[in-house]
Design a protein around this nucleic acid. Sequence first.
DNA 1: CTGAAAGCGCTAACAC
DNA 2: GTGTTAGCGCTTTCAG
Lengths: 331, 331
Amino acid sequence: MDVARAAEVHASTASRALNPETRGVVSDETVARVLQVAKELGYRPHPLARGLRTARSLTVGIVVPDLENPLFPPLVRGAEAALGEQGYTLLIGNTDNDAERTRTVVATLAERRVDGLILATTELGGETVAIARDLGIEVVLVNRETSDGSASAIVGDDHLGIGLAIDHLVGLGHTRIGHVAGPARLSTGVGRAVAFRDHLARHGLVADGMVETADWFQVEPGLQAAATLIERVPELTAIVAANDLLAIGALRALREAGLRVPDDVSLTGYNDMPFVDVLQPPLTTVSVPYREMGRLAAQMLLRRLQGQDGEAETVRLPPTLSVRASTAAPR
Amino acid sequence: MDVARAAEVHASTASRALNPETRGVVSDETVARVLQVAKELGYRPHPLARGLRTARSLTVGIVVPDLENPLFPPLVRGAEAALGEQGYTLLIGNTDNDAERTRTVVATLAERRVDGLILATTELGGETVAIARDLGIEVVLVNRETSDGSASAIVGDDHLGIGLAIDHLVGLGHTRIGHVAGPARLSTGVGRAVAFRDHLARHGLVADGMVETADWFQVEPGLQAAATLIERVPELTAIVAANDLLAIGALRALREAGLRVPDDVSLTGYNDMPFVDVLQPPLTTVSVPYREMGRLAAQMLLRRLQGQDGEAETVRLPPTLSVRASTAAPR
DNA sequence: CTGAAAGCGCTAACAC
DNA sequence: GTGTTAGCGCTTTCAG
């Protein structure tokens, strides 16, 4: 260590002076000299060497199924910002929704000795979580949770979000409200469908026969499901879609059926994806604070890494409703 | 190294057997035994230790201005895929378009000893490139280039892309074509405006007075610029927007002016952002292969890291035209 | 073809 | 408060 030589101290003393944690042990004078010299020499610590010694890489991995799905970038961005503040760097892995790739990606990140892992993958048993745990890697889930709640998670409060949409529609006077649900194998699909039924019941409305399930969170399945729904229940005046892509599909189905939005049928989405505000009509949708979720997930992970392990906790962030022009009072 | 012990060879022999590059030096029999044992023991090499010794981290950083801009995720994803295939991992840094943050992010990644850097930041002198070079880090630019062409870059061929849009419109019979240009301080803004003039000239059409510049690649500035343009040139029958957001703004401006798309005025965008195909009308736009660009940037970087430095080269990828319903023959 | 020895840059345990 | 010593896990000379 050339800094040590230049400051005329031993390498270990220099190391202690450079590290805020151990700095207290060194005399103020020495600390000052070392820092001074380090600055002059433009000293940059070598994280690989440090990591080799301390078994901590100051590195966190984030695993997403599909970065091109507009839901994930804000998550990644929020996490990156929070981690950067604490001197951590973010490694990214994309799994293409493939279980096999998920395993490889997690294995790669584990091999890289990430200190922690933020998992945003969708269809994933507790399996991956267990693997990570075995390797001694802290895990925080984001936008999903394990069924047994054994892992810490940051999720949006879907029950509340669907409630916002329904309250809004009921407030406008709608009583025949349908739901284009997401796939039953995804927790978001099921959860929102359950919430839909709960909230209708709360308002004394019937949900039977008002739900049609799309088998994928995509435009085309949304179109299909919505078409089936409006054919079966022609008297409905509003549709709550389980996400924005399904809503876009529903919008098309309605248009193809000769129905106008919102004049004939009101429509709501979920997620507030970029540019749903420029659709025709601009979509009323539930806005989920994804960036904040990424941020919180990172912070929770860091807290756990800094020792305060404690119980696994699940934070459920409240969404808000972005009211736009796709909803109106029924005729 | 427990693998070595179990295989009853020296650690260095095991190391040689495990490394494909040096494997030839070891007897086939020994190689087989070591690989066998390594497999049984589930041996995973420790990249930090290796990196410490070899001064290579098998890590690449990507710097983007704003991951939430839909242009960047495909870039990152393409890069991640290509790097993963070669055993490299991707570190991500977001700069919020801030020069100061760009410096810190690059510094952090450099400190992490990334082997190479993919830079997708927009407004950036050769400064960052120079810094990285000084630190001995290979750099490849993506979606931008330095003015002097000193750094390797993968970019879209904007001149060709604008040509596709104009040829399409001219082919439909349009002769009075306007341009909503992007900001003059961005290379994409200027480049596309120049291309617009070139291609009109090629078709013997006049560009004078047909260009209006938006001062930001956003919906609102697009609306303003388009409004000004159609007021000044009411006889125009088509607008080429310099990007999709500007096109969405133009769509609104046209609608507000009581003009229908494509009946009264045809409209084209640029980038083929997610969901412009679900606009009303679906937008005809120039589709840029961003994922492919990310992929190529990563591959070019890897090639340079593997020694074949050579000259800096700029690859200009041809875009394609996605013809949708926002363009039609003039009345 | 294989073993021995050294060292990448840093930090932790142990002296003094 | 500071120096000494050792070692993280791996690769790379250098011998033999």
